[in-house]
Write a protein that binds this DNA or RNA. Structure first.
Length: 634
DNA sequence: GATTAGGGTTTG
């Protein structure tokens, strides 16, 4: 293997690199920019590696010789670098190549043959190296998640960056800043590719072959610095395009929407954007060739029995429901459906054209949402009249309770069959009296954690303290013949930190002795207490407006949810820091403000449309239903 | 012989 006398190289683990030294290292590639022409005189490649010490090292590699830079095809490849200069930049250790730099690259797949890729004529390669590669492969298989950026065309989605392995079918100069590549990988995109207008431009490549392939061939525009590289590519060669961007274009004409998928390789080298030619002996090229061969056959069969000059199929919809045809496993959704999984996905542009009411399954990203402050999104909903109201502020609540506290307590209403009563007189508050009535169960007082108490003349802070100790608290006042509930704007039941309210319109208050009709006087479910007291209880709900975007259109949908979507009860959110943090975290996960929308997670949702009439104006609104945040987000 | 870039997506 070795053509030079064996030298003993020492490889430094990445956590032991010292500034100012020259080191040899091994590592697994976690990020790389394929070699590109720098603004100076050299080609440049930036490579980040990691090893078993879990420490990362970013390496800046320059060479006037394209071939001298490491031949990395994908993340997970394993590299051996000789003679890196270790330095500190922005308080981080980095490496730069210097005199005598040399590299070997290996496939990172466990079990694949260990064959070094290098342009070096002479290099040292021993059984020790074999072991190093093997060990890194084993370590990486359990410590580094496989990269999902390599996609087949059939698996791409609108608004996505991905790496494409393909064969070049044709190329054409568009203008100084952009260049057209026609490529294929043997699979069909979920939407037909856009067709870049060629006008008088000259296409290099077999036009009839490209035409035969029809929708298997896609158009890619590459820009700026990639134009030179694209020009130099040979038709027929196998290439990998890194960080290719998809964008769905929807064109409207006469009640019809035509959708087409655009492919852009934007200028710059961020995220490793670039193109690299793959050699014929590359294992991914092997697979690609097989895919092209079998796809080629079906394409020929197809063209045999159809008209030769048939135009490309265009992808049209006039309100049909099943447009998304491909189920993707590459990108899991951050939300899941709890029902109606049989529904086909519908693009937003199609939904926006249709009449209400209907139900749809969609896949979209959360572009933005309102309100931004969590406490502003919590409301009270009446399930009967569907009215929404604000949750009373603590200050208002205190006033309502104080009003109740000024009423004189009627001694005749104390100590009944239903409850035992006790009255306290405050010392320094003008002799304010507080009466507490302990509701009995079978004639005896239950334990405090099962006991419902009725309180007359208590302040908010007193009620708070009591609600921590007793199962339930009902603020009451003395009526003519019985204790009665305070104003309906006061809570009718307090359990721990949860304040239960009733609907002003729908409730028909009954007095306290009606609690006698409850057989079980230890469970005190809000629904049953409400029922016997003539109250229609209000439900705590999150009310939010989601601006959803799937690349075909933008739609605003309401989320009105008590506990299903976030799997956190809206009733407990206002007084629970942990719950608040959880919801904030979920929102930040599904709508991260710091990054671009393309990197947001997809959300699978069910939405229903309905008509809303406002005076003369009629519009269609949308509401999310039967959708929940995926468990790994919680 | 120094420079290049120093990872973290275009706005076509």
């Amino acid at each position: 293997m070795s053509l030079v006398p064996s030298t003993n190289y020492i490889y430094t683990p990445l956590n032991q690199l010292k500034e100012g030294t020259i080191a040899n290292v091994y590592g697994v590639v976690t990020f790389f920019k394929p070699p590109y022409l720098s603004k100076g005189t050299d080609y440049c490649s930036v490579v980040t590696i990691v090893d078993q010490t879990n420490v990362r090292l970013t390496c800046l590699l320059f060479s006037g010789n394209y071939e001298a830079l490491p031949i990395i095809y994908k993340n997970g490849d394993i590299v051996r670098f000789h003679r890196l200069k270790i330095q500190i930049y922005k308080k981080e250790t980095q490496a730069i190549n210097g005199a005598g730099f040399a590299s070997l690259t290996f496939e990172g797949t466990l079990g694949a043959p260990i064959v070094p890729r290098t342009s070096s004529k002479y290099f040292n390669f021993t059984t020790e190296d074999h072991k190093m590669v093997e060990a890194l492969r084993v370590w990486a298989s359990t410590h580094i998640s496989p990269s999902w950026t390599l996609l087949k065309l059939c698996d791409v989605q609108p608004m996505q960056y991905f790496d494409l392995t393909c064969q070049l079918l044709g190329k054409a100069e568009v203008d100084g800043a952009s260049f057209l590549l026609k490529v294929w990988d043997g699979t069909k995109t979920p939407f037909p590719s856009w067709r870049v207008l060629l006008q008088n431009l000259v296409l290099e490549g077999d036009a009839s072959h490209i035409h035969r392939l029809q929708n298997l061939a896609i158009d890619i525009l590459v820009y700026d610095n990639h134009v030179q590289v694209a020009k130099s590519l040979k038709v027929g060669s196998f290439i990998r395009i890194y960080s290719l961007h998809t964008k769905l274009q929807s064109l409207n004409s006469e009640n019809q929407t035509t959708l087409s998928l655009e492919f852009h390789l934007h200028g710059g080298t961020s995220y490793g954007r670039g193109i690299r030619v793959l050699p014929e002996n590359n294992s991914d090229v092997d697979q690609l060739k097989k895919a092209l061969q079998s796809a080629d056959l079906t394409a020929h069969q197809h063209s045999d029995d159809t008209c030769q000059s048939e135009p490309d199929d265009s992808f049209q919809s006039s309100g049909s429901v099943s447009l998304y045809e491909v189920e993707r496993c590459q990108q899991l959704s951050a939300t899941i459906l709890t029902d109606h999984q049989y529904l086909e996905k519908t693009p937003l542009c199609a939904i926006l054209k249709q009449k209400a009411p209907q139900q749809y399954r969609i896949r979209a990203k959360l572009r933005s949402y309102k309100p931004r402050k969590l406490f502003q999104s919590v409301k009270l909903l009446c399930p009967k009249c569907h009215s929404l109201q604000e949750v009373p502020h603590e200050g208002n609540l205190d006033m309502i309770l104080q009003d109740g506290a000024t009423k004189t307590q009627d001694d005749k209403l104390q100590n009944t069959l239903l409850y035992d009563s006790k009255v306290w007189t405050t010392e320094d508050q003008g002799g304010r009296k507080v009466a507490v009535h302990f509701v009995k169960h079978g004639g005896i007082l239950p334990l405090s954690n099962e006991c419902l108490i009725l309180i007359e003349g208590g302040t908010l802070s007193e009620i708070c303290k009591l609600s921590n100790k007793f199962h339930s608290v009902i603020p009451v006042r003395s009526g003519h013949e019985d204790l009665e509930l305070l104003d309906i704007s006061a809570p009718f039941l307090i359990q721990g930190k949860v304040y239960h309210y009733g609907c002003k319109q729908c409730s028909n208050l009954r007095t306290i002795q009606n609690l006698n009709s409850l057989v079980d006087k230890t469970s005190w479910s809000p629904a049953s207490v409400a029922e016997v007291l003539g109250i229609v209880p209000l439900q705590y709900v999150f009310v939010m407006t989601f601006t959803l975007d799937d690349g075909t259109g933008v739609l605003e949908a309401f989320l009105m949810d008590s506990d299903k979507f976030f799997q956190i009860p809206a009733s407990e959110i206002l007084n629970d820091d942990d719950h608040q943090k959880s919801v904030d975290m979920i929102m930040d996960m599904i709508c991260p403000s710091r990054i671009k929308i393309d990197a947001y997670p997809w959300l699978e949702c069910l939405i229903k449309s309905y008509n809303v009439t406002n005076g003369m104006e009629q519009k269609i609104c949308y509401q999310i239903f039967d959708t929940t945040v995926a468990e790994d987000l919680i």
